[in-house]
């Protein structure tokens, strides 16, 4: 019984917005299955009463003053845009409203 099925991998690809081909799915699914078996070893550690660590160091309250700093120019902002129009980023039609 694999730890992850081909269908689940296809679902992950949709969530991650990657248009995987069937051939890639065939290739990736068993590899992911192996990797998940490896990483699943973390469950062997008894850690019920252990607090999780999300940050390497225990810093808190790092904030900046509410002041303005110079922006990019619109030319700089748009310099990498695959397409631009009217000083805006031109993107293909959007299917769904947010």
């Amino acid at each position: 019984m694999p730890s992850i099925t081909r269908e689940e991998v296809a679902h992950l690809a949709r969530l991650a917005r990657i248009e995987l081909s069937d051939a890639e799915l065939d290739h990736l699914a068993p590899q992911l299955d192996q990797i998940i078996a490896l990483v699943g070893q973390v469950s062997q550690v008894a850690a019920d009463d252990i607090p999780p660590t999300s940050h390497a160091l225990p810093l808190t309250n790092v904030m900046r003053e509410d002041v303005n700093v110079p922006c990019l120019t619109p030319e700089q902002a748009l310099s990498g845009a695959p397409a631009a129009e009217e000083q805006r980023f031109r993107v293909p039609r959007i299917l769904e409203e947010d």
Binding site: V39, G40, V42, S43, V45, A47, I50, P51, P52, T53, S54
Partner: peptide, 12 residues
């Protein structure tokens, strides 16, 4: 099971 547990291992 995965991310949460990995963070606990990080603590250990």
């Amino acid at each position: 099971a995965y991310y949460g547990q990995a963070q606990k291992v990080r603590t250990l």
